[in-house]
Design a protein around this nucleic acid. Structure first.
Lengths: 214, 214
DNA sequence: CCTTTGACTTTTTAAACAAAAAAGTCAGAT
DNA sequence: ATCTGACTTTTTTGTTTAAAAAGTCAAAGG
């Protein structure tokens, strides 16, 4: 009985395609990338791509999920190394920022407009938000237990903080010179995010009464 | 010598047109309102409209500026009645909220998309932002002088806070069931704004070091 | 089998043109 | 000085056609 040594290793092939797609997506965005081109890049026929990925959306979703995974791993690893809530949150803000910078690039051509890309990015964003608020809730609760932070409902605060970050990001990106952000713009954005975070965290440190839910 | 008693009182006429335009704009938005319709509403020919207002943009700008003026007056009046920074800021947040709710209505059809309306609303938003940050800077400085709030640069804090409010608003509106917000959604939005404000102000109350400008 | 592909069909996007609607102008009436 | 009908110009909308890209599949090759 012989074992087949050289299986074509489907996983590898998939990753290969993924990488090519990732490159194109990062360079030109969803709409400006064709399946044909990706196939050509790796010397493969378009039909073969469809053997591995059922459609374009699915392929690009896979690309994006891949990036996400990286992000999640990085965050959790970094958080585990730290001890106090303050630093954890600030670290999350920083890492999150780099992820979004990458995504801004991905959707380079036409970000705001609601083309095909929208549902894709919406889904992506929702996933990130869910993950982010989970982590944040954990961190906030940790801060509460250690007596540093004070509030009623950690989940509520996490959602608020997450929206606040995303809101600031949107505002700042909108103000930008359009398509691609310069170093200066990036520096400014990260400064704004850090400042807001500092104030927010500080605001949770001492007695404070939020209005009750209505 | 006889005095002409019935002059047509041009100022009145202008206001008359303004009001009609305002109604249409509020009801259908910029693109879905034609000059023809406005003229018809007040039993006037379209050409006459052009006698008073050079073009459509100018007319609608006038409408919007009118609304703005109301807002500015209200804010300043209310601020003058109050004494401490906390309350002033919260009041500003509340009044600002009602203004934007009105505007949301104005741009009912297609808010995010960048059609003709965009430059109009951009200009409007910039004016409000300028006014708002001026007021905020004054208030923050007052808070600093009275020793309640602590920070380096009031203007910087004002800009940050203004962006933060606007960011939260955008995020929440985006999440909405689309076109027209329900009472529940409105309540939620105002709660989020209040909470964020409370935390933010509280975060400025005690020692805190922002990262230096880079 | 599992993978690959050429040749095909279907769907989407883009270009070009025509028609309709709205914006904007103006000479002449009141 | 104010107003309007009749006009021109510009924008929007709709239609048609062609091209490009998405997506399918039967058959071929290892």
């Amino acid at each position: 009985m012989e074992t087949v040594v050289i299986t074509t290793e489907p996983e590898r092939k998939v990753d290969f395609i993924l990488k090519a797609a990732q490159k194109r997506l990062g360079l030109y965005g969803y709409e400006k990338t064709t399946m044909q081109e990706i196939a050509a890049d790796i010397g493969m026929s378009k039909a073969s791509l469809y053997y591995y990925y059922p459609d374009k959306d699915y392929l690009f979703k896979a690309v994006i999920e891949n990036e996400q995974k990286e992000f999640f791993i990085q965050i959790e690893k970094r958080i585990a190394e730290l001890t106090d809530a303050d630093t954890m949150i600030m670290e999350l803000v920083e890492i999150r920022h780099t992820l979004f910078r990458k995504f801004l690039n991905l959707s380079k051509f036409r970000l705001n407009e609601d083309h095909k890309v929208k549902p894709l990015f919406t889904e992506l964003y929702n996933r990130i938000r869910e993950f982010e608020t989970d982590i944040l809730t954990t961190i906030f609760n940790k801060g509460k237990e250690s007596g540093i932070l004070q509030f009623e409902d950690a989940k509520e605060i996490a959602l608020l903080f997450s929206d606040l970050l995303q809101g600031l990001r949107i505002i700042e990106v909108k103000r930008m010179s359009r398509l691609e952000m310069t170093e200066a713009e990036n520096d400014h954005l990260i400064k704004v995010l850090r400042d807001a975070t500092t104030i927010f965290i500080n605001g949770l440190k001492y007695n404070m009464l939020l209005q009750p839910k209505n």
